[in-house]
Simulated scan of single mutants.
Amino acid sequence: MTANRGRWPKIDPDSGIEDAVLPILEWLGEQGVGAMIRVDAERVRDQKPAWTFAAGGGPLSHPLRADGATAQECLSRALVYLREAGVDVPF
Rank of each mutant, 00 (worst) to 15 (best):
G68K: 03
L64D: 14
G86C: 10
H62K: 15
P59V: 09
Q47I: 10
I37Q: 12
K48L: 15
L82R: 00
K48C: 05
G56T: 13
G68V: 03
R45K: 14
I11V: 15
V89Q: 13
L75D: 00
V87M: 01
P49L: 08
V21L: 11
E84D: 09
W51A: 05
P90Q: 06
L75E: 00
A78C: 07
Q47F: 01
A69S: 13
A66L: 04
Q72M: 06
R77Q: 08
A3M: 09
P13I: 01
E26P: 01
D67T: 15
A78T: 08
G16C: 02
R7K: 14
R77D: 05
L64M: 15
R45H: 09
R77P: 05
A35N: 04
A85W: 09
L60D: 05
G34A: 15
E73V: 01
V33I: 14
W27K: 02
W27C: 02
A50M: 07
V33M: 00
C74K: 05
V39P: 01
E18P: 03
A78W: 02
A20W: 02
S15V: 03
I17G: 03
A85S: 15
E18F: 04
G34W: 07
G57A: 11
V33W: 00
L22E: 14
G56R: 12
P63Q: 10
P63H: 08
R45G: 13
F53E: 04
I37D: 04
P13V: 02
R77Y: 05
V44L: 10
A50Y: 07
C74F: 10
A69I: 03
D46Q: 12
R38Q: 13
L22M: 08
V33S: 00
P23M: 02
H62N: 09
D46F: 00
V39A: 06
R43V: 07
L22T: 15
P9N: 10
A69Q: 06
R45E: 15
M1V: 07
L25R: 08
Q72A: 12
T2G: 07
I24T: 10
A85N: 12
A78H: 03
A41P: 05
G86S: 10
G68P: 09
A78G: 08
G16N: 03
F91C: 09
L28Y: 13
P59Y: 04
A41T: 07
G57W: 09
R5N: 13
G6Q: 11
